[in-house]
Design a protein around this nucleic acid. Structure first.
Lengths: 348, 348
DNA sequence: TAGAGCCTGGACAACGTTGTCAGAGCGGGA
DNA sequence: TCCCGCTCTGACAACGTTGTCCAGGCTCTA
């Protein structure tokens, strides 16, 4: 007599809350354990009739393979970890999405977490992911010492750093050309007649911030303009301090006529400051952001391609896993100047 | 003779690429396997001296516990899954960040993936996460039939739906008050003298879209205004079609004087359309977005609190896991009208 | 009809960890 | 001196899967 739709919780000898295993399926289908495994994994060597019986048992019991056991046995988890700064930051949305797409194309899942810019938390998170035996790790560094990852990398965890290079170890890194981008952005302001140009950026201990500052200095030097200390504001990142910094630059006897903003959060804050003032001040920001074109004037930016960063990094990671990419490399992706108005304002 | 900093890849009987296990650590420290386990897990009953020896061995070998094996043994993974629509959508950034924070507070990791609004992909992803034996699942539904999750939920996977309710099963859901929010937003336009108000929203098969449409109709009905078909555009989501829809509403002999936009992507597109026109048209959008206050005029929105949605959902999920929350519930979070100018324009 | 070879199925070990339980060593009390 | 009880340690099984290997039954050929 064929069974008629048994209730899934009436599993043989299992209590509520536990799940059927291949053994249960095998018992129900009246076959051996390994046969079930073969069916589940689509391996050859199973008669259509047997396969059908097994499929029915799987269906009836609501069986789902336990991937933990599988991972334990096979050694590979088909998952990669992504450690970023803050999931809520719009810059990382497209980036993690791109990483996810590549992972998906390779049949891998994405596990991710935010370091909140805290090096300790970055380490904790990265090591937790390693304990899960992720196959690879994409890290947007918060700290500047990644030696803690050496044993992991030696053990075969593919590792790629994005946006900022790794600290004190030799590893793949995919970056935007911060130096070149900043230099071009500042040069753009210079080309429009500005001479007193301010720079507001993050702490120079952050690689990208340092590079952008270097780009700013290089552009000014190329134009033969000595930079005054009061034009630069470094390590300023929270809105209130950015606001004050901007206001100070714009006050005094010889105020700046243009500002170069080191990242998109700074840019947005500067936009707010400028919106509250009558006098027009030119602005170029590093990083594009949504709606930049709708503001009045549109905000001219040095855009980096977050999705390309993520895609490139993930592809290198799988390249490492394939064994095709072996020597660590630093890849710099170009930036693109998008003119929208704010960077083309003349000095006032 | 004490060993001096052995090279980590010289593991006893292990080849390059494999990792030391507790057995290796035990052998090196000259203790039993279980003692290592005790030290690693901070269990009591180990002499300080033994513990020190074990710690040294761990250090020397670069040992890291294999969580896959641990999970297999313990049954709990200390990780939760998040299935959302699109990681790159700014609305989901704060949401997933909030989920992550709660997970972190409970010592759990977050695994996530995007469904890209594809029901099949949602299912595939959710089931993959279940195969990994996540303890719980936060799902932003793309499909409208979630019966496939029943065996999982019965097996003890905590499940919470966010932003939209589950389809065809009884499950926890945390939603924004789409109906009330839309009604209030439209009422706001009515209060400013508008009578011909357009509505552009997503397909009504999406719960939130249907609710917002219902709110629009309710507000209009309350004001005693019969809604004309040409004022409504449903199932329109890609920018080009939104643009056309908006332009059609604004053309003709009796154009609308105000538009209610059903979600933030629509709102942004409508803003672009309106920016290109001389005549002023009032606009209220559902969902807040960054820089809405900087546009001219600022965009009046019905804001939902994405972070609160995520936080509430995750907390309910861990409540289920604690065993404190047992009966599925639908929670609606209030929305908030933020006036910034665009919704207060008079009819022209 | 007998033998060779193929196809299907199953028994068993192993992956690395943790829970159980029992044994070893030691100190103190009778 | 002997025994009890305590603390610390380790042997062993189990978690659910997959890889290896062998057995049995079948078909095909001589």
């Amino acid at each position: 007599m064929p069974e008629t739709a048994p209730r899934p919780d009436r599993l043989s000898g299992t209590r509520y809350g536990s799940r059927p295993t291949m053994k249960d399926v095998a018992a129900r289908a009246g076959v051996g354990l390994k046969t079930v495994s073969r069916v589940v994994n689509g391996e050859p060597g199973v008669t259509p009739d047997t396969e059908r019986r097994v499929q029915e048992a799987i269906e009836a019991l609501g069986f789902r393979r336990n991937d933990s056991a599988r991972v334990l046995r096979k050694g590979r988890t088909a998952s990669i970890g992504l450690v970023l700064e803050d999931l809520a930051d719009p810059f990382y949305g497209p980036l993690s999405r791109a990483v996810e797409e590549v992972a998906r194309a390779h049949g891998a899942l994405l596990i991710n977490g935010s370091s909140a810019e805290d090096p300790e938390r970055e380490q904790e998170l990265a090591l937790a992911l390693c304990a899960r035996r992720v196959d690879g790790l994409v890290v947007i560094p918060a700290g500047d010492d990644h030696r803690y990852l050496e044993p992991e990398m030696r053990a075969g965890v593919a590792t790629v750093f994005v946006d900022r290079p790794a600290g004190k170890i030799d590893a793949d890194a995919v970056l935007s050309d911060s130096f070149g981008g900043a230099r071009d952005g500042v040069a753009h302001l210079l080309a429009h007649g500005h001479r007193r140009i301010g720079f507001i950026g993050d702490m120079p201990r952050i690689h990208t911030a340092a590079e952008r500052l270097r780009g700013y200095r290089a552009a000014m030097a190329d134009a033969g303009i000595p930079v005054e200390e009061s034009w630069m504001s470094l390590g300023v990142t929270d809105p209130e301090r950015v606001r004050r910094a901007a206001e100070e630059m714009l006050a005094g006897p010889a105020p700046v006529t243009a500002i170069f903003a080191g990242n998109n959060r700074v840019t947005v804050t500067v936009v707010r400051v400028l919106a509250g003032r009558g006098r027009s001040v030119a602005l170029v920001g590093f990083d594009d952001f949504e709606l930049a074109d709708l503001l009045d004037p549109g905000v001219t930016v040095v855009a980096q391609d977050a999705a390309a960063l993520g895609r490139t990094a993930a592809e290198r990671l799988f390249g490492q896993l394939d064994g095709t990419l072996l020597t660590p490399e630093r890849i710099e992706l170009p930036t693109r100047l998008i003119t929208r108005g704010s960077g083309e304002l003349p000095p006032s």
